[in-house]
């Protein structure tokens, strides 16, 4: 190939070629039909590193269209570097409009959070997933975890959670807290804080999960039962803060702790920057 030909290089709409999109789309349809089940797919190398959202990016690339309005967040914020980079990538290869408003977005790609603003019917959430296998830390072999899912054999996870209770008095998992989807598949909600788990249950939005490096994707359709694992005498509960957000005063959002000086002074602010903004504007 000549240099002249390379400098003229034109990427397809949304970067991926149409064959790759079709492969992903077929896999997504199966994922929706089997809620919470991890569908293997022929993940491609993307122009962002594995572990930096390549699964989410491939899913978004396979579903995004010219009419979409895209929001990208990392840690709840639209302005974190990786979110900026991914949003720029899609702006460059699709030309679609982007937004930081949860309500205005038709497509939201996220790492580690679900927005505080309730999702609407028709919206699609795309999660970036580092490790799609909820059982992986308990069983390293993919062959074995496949068998466990096939037999709905989730005793390992219950034992692990119960050992937490025996040792600490409660379940010591604070994020990536395992869920049962549609009473059948044990799934990873991705490393969202367990604070966000209840937002998955019977959500009106479609939730798609992409793990590029691990080459698997899965889905939670709208209006689907999603239960965080728990025991009768140790029901599931979420994080709470004594403080309100220092910027907007919200008592209901997930807070980030920020160290403000060398003496260790700190403040708590919403991790969801769009939500925080809305709350501040609402009060003004």
């Amino acid at each position: 190939m000549t240099e002249a030909c390379h400098s003229q290089w034109q990427y397809n709409f949304a970067f991926l070629d149409e064959n790759t999109k079709r492969m992903l789309r077929r896999a997504l349809l199966k994922a929706v039909a089997i809620p919470g089940y991890q569908v293997p797919f022929g993940s491609r190398e993307m122009p962002l590193p594995y572990g930096w959202g390549t699964g989410g990016i491939q899913l978004t690339a396979s579903i995004i269209g010219q009419d979409d309005v895209l929001k990208v967040i990392d840690q709840g914020a639209d302005d974190t570097t990786n979110a900026v980079n991914i949003r720029r990538f899609f702006a460059r290869v699709t030309g679609v409009s982007t937004t930081s408003s949860t309500a205005a977005a038709s497509l939201i790609q996220s790492r580690h959070r679900i927005p505080e603003t309730p999702l609407q019917p028709g919206q699609i959430m795309v999660f970036q997933v580092p490790e799609p296998e909820a059982l992986r830390t308990l069983e390293a072999s993919e062959v074995e975890t496949r068998k466990l899912h096939a037999h709905q054999e989730y005793g390992l996870m219950h034992v692990k959670l119960y050992e937490d209770i025996a040792r600490f008095g409660h379940i010591a998992t604070s994020y990536d807290y395992p869920v049962m989807v549609n009473d059948r598949y044990l799934s990873s909600p991705s490393p969202i804080p367990k604070f966000d788990n209840p937002k998955l249950h019977m959500s009106p939005a479609l939730m798609l999960f992409g793990a590029g490096r691990e080459k698997r994707l899965y889905a939670i359709p709208p209006h689907t039962r999603v239960e965080s694992l728990a025991f009768e005498d140790h029901p599931f509960s979420v994080q709470r803060w004594e403080q309100a957000c220092a910027l907007c005063g919200s008592h209901d959002s997930y807070l980030d702790e920020i160290i403000t000086d060398d003496a260790g002074a700190r403040m708590f602010v919403c991790s969801d920057t769009d939500y925080c903004q809305q709350q501040q504007e609402g009060k003004a």
Partner: peptide, 9 residues
């Protein structure tokens, strides 16, 4: 990459 949210948890 930022892991603020999980680290906070």
């Amino acid at each position: 990459l930022p892991h603020y949210v999980d680290f906070q948890a």
